[in-house]
Design a protein around this nucleic acid. Structure first.
Length: 439
RNA sequence: GGAGGCAUCGCCUAGUCCGGUCUAUGGCGCCGCACUGCUAAUGCGGUUUGGGUUUAUCGCCCAUCGAGGGUUCAAAUCCCUCUGCCUCCGCCA
């Protein structure tokens, strides 16, 4: 959610953001009307309620007097007064009830509209759709397999040669887009986890293992029940959701809390399985493990002062680069365009790894500055010398297992089907230097 | 899954039986001021959160006693439902 003050003082800022995202601009006018209506209804209720309370305060003492009255004349007089007040109070009570209902309804209408509004985009973000990103940096050089004299195999072929990936049995047991990591594949994931956590803790991030099943409030608060809802698994029987990223439980962790400013920034590295329905991606990336329904991921998550958010975002980018650098994978950094941002992101940078058999770069990490958007929805605030206000949250992938494995296998393969293990990973694989085909 | 207990404004706590004087008590912590060689102690004042009103300050109003309903002129207090935590029993990775 966005600061409602902006709606009243600078609605054009909201309109411009909506326009850049390619989302409804008219929504802002509905919002303004609804905001006015809500405040009017609320004010009416407040005033009636005040009247009611003032009236109610007279009744108590009066009834006390009525009980004490000795002579009949005084008693009758007191009784008449009480009856009169009660009659007034009863009418008022009905009005209060109606005003309360009206205010509540107006509030619900307003809230529902706010849920449709995505975060204000950062004006630096390139405007446009999925293809309109800006390339900020290209790091490393893709290998020239032609010069090396062999045709590169794709990750699935290598994975099968090594006995590391089994998608056939994944499909047998769970359906399409499920896979097993076997033998060296499983060991590789564990090594990657260790490398990622070692790096994260070296930078002071707090390691976390999070729930993967969450309540609707956590899912909605992080902004995944908007346009991304179709990609979320819902457990209907218990009204819970399987998370698509540990961003959700890491953001929900401090929901409804007020954090002392001197504790900030709070930085976490969460390890969890991630579940994605991949609705609307039929036919896309059907081969291998680039796009799957379930995978494991180490995700970084930061709570900080809003004024520090951009600097934190740069830090997350730097840490993501450090990790990919360690794996010796060629990649580029892109500034994602406004139309391709998630609803909660103001700005997003993706790292895309070079995939030799596709001759292109593919996303392996993504980091978003969600400014105060999630914090407002989840009621996470900070307290400093200026009082209490929402803080900023940011998230960034450190290591999404399948895609990193894809990039590793393809980029470090050799003519005989073996795969050289990058130096940084060897300590976590007992010093092993190369994966060799099973037989 | 069964039985019982508990939930109050940072922490602890009074209030709930018997509805109105609750504008929610007191302590701790914290902030400000005073006093004081310094510190400490002491005294005085302040200290939930959200919304509204106000150019702003001061102030005023509304909501908020785990959540949501209900009864009532009036609910922390009475009734119902739900959630969480604790204890015991059963089952179980």
């Amino acid at each position: 959610m966005i600061d409602p003050q902006i709606l009243r003082t600078d609605p054009d800022r909201l309109r411009e953001s909506q326009r850049r995202r390619g989302e409804s601009v008219e929504l802002i006018d509905d919002l303004i009307a609804s905001d006015v209506a809500k405040r009017e209804a609320q004010t009416r209720f407040d005033e009636l309620r005040n009247e009611q309370k003032l009236l109610g305060k007279q009744i108590g003492p009066l009834q006390g007097a009525l009980k004490k009255a000795d002579d009949d004349a005084a008693k009758a007089k007191a009784q008449a007064e009480v009856d009169d007040l009660m009659a007034q109070a009863q009418t008022l009570a009905e009005q209060v009830k109606a005003a309360d209902a009206a205010a509540t309804a107006a509030g619900e209408t307003l809230d529902a509209l706010w849920l449709q509004v995505s975060n204000l985009v950062n004006l630096e973000s390139p405007v446009g759709g999925e293809e309109d990103f800006t390339v900020l940096e290209e790091i490393g050089t893709p290998r020239d397999f032609a010069a090396e004299g062999f045709e590169p195999r794709d990750h699935l072929e290598i994975g099968e040669l090594l006995g590391a990936i089994d998608v056939e049995r994944g499909a047998k047991v769970s359906g399409s887009r499920f896979f097993y990591l076997t033998g060296p594949g499983a060991m590789l994931e564990i090594a990657l986890l260790n490398l990622a956590m070692q790096q994260a803790t070296a930078h002071g991030l707090i390691p976390m293992i999070t729930p993967t099943l969450v309540l609707p409030s956590a899912m909605e608060g992080t902004g995944f029940l908007g346009q991304a809802a179709e990609n979320v698994y819902r457990i209907e029987q218990d009204d819970m959701y399987l998370v698509g990223t540990s961003e959700v439980p890491l953001a929900g962790y401090h929901a409804d809390e007020i954090i002392d400013a001197d504790q900030l920034p709070l930085r976490y590295a969460g390890w969890s399985s991630c579940f994605r329905r991949e609705a609307g991606s039929y036919g896309k990336d059907t081969r291998g493990i680039i796009r799957v329904h379930q995978f494991d991921k180490v995700e970084m998550f930061v709570y900080c002062r809003p004024e520090d958010a951009e600097a934190e975002h740069a830090r997350l980018v730097a840490w993501e680069k450090e990790f990919i650098d360690a794996l010796e994978i060629p990649y580029r950094v892109i500034d994602v365009a406004t139309g391709d941002l998630g609803s909660s992101a103001a700005r997003k940078f993706d790292m895309e790894a070079w995939i030799p058999t596709q001759g292109t770069y593919r996303e392996i990490t993504s980091t978003s500055n969600t400014t105060e958007f999630q914090a407002r929805r989840l009621k996470i605030r900070m307290r400093d010398e200026n009082g209490t206000r929402p803080l900023a949250t940011l998230n960034g992938t450190l290591c999404a297992m399948p895609r990193v494995i894809v990039a590793l296998l393809e980029n470090h393969q050799q003519a005989d089907g073996s795969v050289v293990i990058p130096m940084a990973l060897r300590p976590f694989l007992g010093g092993q230097e190369v994966f060799t085909p099973a037989s």
